[in-house]
Design a protein around this nucleic acid. Structure first.
Length: 438
RNA sequence: GUCCUGUUCGUCUAGUCGGUUAGGACACCGGGUUUUCAUCCCGACAACAGGAGUUCGAAUCUCCUACGGGACGCCA
């Protein structure tokens, strides 16, 4: 363990935003990289906006991403409580110190901090020294008796012995207020790292709740792999500087450092996110793919597929390299489990030129005569068949795929046939023929 | 308006001390392999915001301009 202590301090006021997730991630990565402590602190001092469901969704999303915290709600720790709404005693103590120092005064019922008049120098790891003068006194306690963000934020960071404040660059201008407070308390300021913001894919401004792809739950709902999301997010404003992009979480942790964080804002790119997620999916171990796949099927109401475990496992095996996202999984494999599968009209049009009825008759008798039903034998037989009829193998392959799955795309045909088994394949050919589609 | 901050391909980025055919990735386009889609492979397109200065030499240093982003609440 090192003495690095970082924190993520969200306000549970709504959905978990991708920008917040990225900030949490960078804090978490830095803690993991340095062997430090990652603190989760809930900034719910504005009690009216705070909602219980928002908090629960926030914690669930953080956990889904795998960003576990060392101290905070539900795990506790030596510097609790970790909800600002429960820390009033602490704030009162700190307020008293400022009062004793004569640094505050009351106006219209609110308590104001007298500003020092000195230019503050912020020690920012990413931007270097930043100088800014805080010209006006500011409120630290509202007239309703509750403390404001700038005050509680600094008090908590002092009290929780936070060593590095990693947060969005939108806070950089606020930091001069925070420096006033640190100095008033005669407390050493932490290292600051103001990370670049995530901007809209197009158009002006930063990503907002309304933008497509801005909410973490969207990715959970679409069965993204947390490792894929994390990989993409880590590349927004940071790079390992060696042209590597596809990385496991452990590799990112090993490579991550504040010195590698950029100054420039980054635009969100859904296509690249999808690409990185699909790469992670493809590189999943068989076991991990199976576990994830089962979870997806359960959550989409296809638990009946799970009863045929051996079949499911062999399907997963031939499907993994073709699948781009788990969201597509149920639809991608449905025909294996549904004997009354539908036929895709467009594909039907495409294969009409092969004289599909005739081809199916030939395939049927060929398959019926097979003793060893394995991929190699099937391939050889289909090649022989096409040669005998002076046709491209595609004529048989496309027709057969359509007949047994109703679709034009899917896993390797030969493997598909073996997975289904000879009897089932013959039954499906008959089912297709009986439909009189051609 | 004031203050802070930034500016390399369409996008994410590499390019620590000035000398590179300015590299990689996504996207897009073209070609190839594969039974189809996907994968995979190959290729093409594509950038140092502009200007001045320092220098033999600047994407790299300095200044100015332009443009972008952020903050200016008894929100966080």
């Amino acid at each position: 363990m090192s003495d690095v202590r970082v924190r993520f301090a969200p306000s549970p006021t709504g959905y978990f935003h991708i920008g917040g997730a990225r900030t949490a991630l960078f804090n978490w990565l830095y803690a993991k990289h340095t062997g430090g402590t990652f603190v989760l602190r809930i900034e719910d001092s504005d009690t009216e906006r705070n909602k219980k469901e928002s908090l629960e969704s926030l914690l669930a999303n953080l956990r889904w991403m795998g960003l576990d915290w060392d101290e905070g709600p539900e795990v506790e720790g030596p510097y609790g409580p970790y909800f600002q709404s429960e820390r009033n005693g602490i704030y009162q103590k700190y307020l008293k110190r400022l009062q004793d120092l004569g640094r505050v005064y009351t106006k219209e019922g609110a308590i104001w901090l007298k500003v020092s008049g000195e230019t503050q120098t912020i020690d920012d790891v990413i931007h270097g020294p930043v100088r800014r003068l805080e010209e006006k006194d500011f409120v630290i306690y509202r007239s309703n008796g509750t403390p404001v963000f700038h005050f509680v934020n600094v008090v908590d960071d002092i009290d929780m012995k936070i060593t590095h404040v990693i947060r969005g660059e939108d806070h950089l201008s606020n930091t001069s207020k925070h420096m006033e407070l640190y100095k008033a308390f005669d407390a050493p300021a932490p290292k600051f790292a103001h990370i670049p913001l995530i901007l809209k894919t197009d158009g002006p401004g930063k990503m907002s709740k309304r933008d497509r792809g801005s909410l973490v739950e969207e990715y959970r709902d679409k069965f993204f792999l947390p490792a894929g999301l994390i990989n993409y997010l880590s590349l927004l404003g940071w790079s390992p500087k060696n042209d590597r992009e596809l990385m496991s979480i452990d590799e990112i942790i090993a490579a991550f450092d504040l010195s590698g964080v950029n100054k420039t804002h980054a635009r969100f790119d859904e296509k690249k996110l999808n690409y990185i997620n699909s790469e992670h999916l493809r590189h999943l171990s068989k076991e991990a793919f199976y576990e994830n796949g089962c979870k997806v099927l359960k959550q989409t109401g296809h638990e009946n597929y799970l009863s045929q475990d051996a079949l499911l496992r062999s399907i997963f095996e031939i499907v993994q390299e073709k699948l781009r996202s788990f969201e597509e999984l149920p639809n991608f494999i449905a025909y294996f489990f549904n004997s009354q599968y539908d036929f895709d009209y467009k594909t039907l049009q495409k294969i009409q030129k092969y004289d599909p009825k005739q081809r199916l008759m030939e395939l049927k008798s060929m398959l019926q005569g097979m003793v060893h039903f394995d991929t190699e034998s099937i391939e050889t037989n289909i090649q022989q068949l096409s040669k005998a009829h002076n046709l491209n193998t595609g004529a048989y392959i496309h027709t057969l795929r359509f007949a047994i799955s109703g679709r034009g795309v899917g896993p390797s045909l030969y493997h598909m046939l073996v997975v289904m088994g000879k009897e089932e394949v013959l039954r499906r050919i008959q089912y297709c023929l009986d439909k009189n589609l051609f």
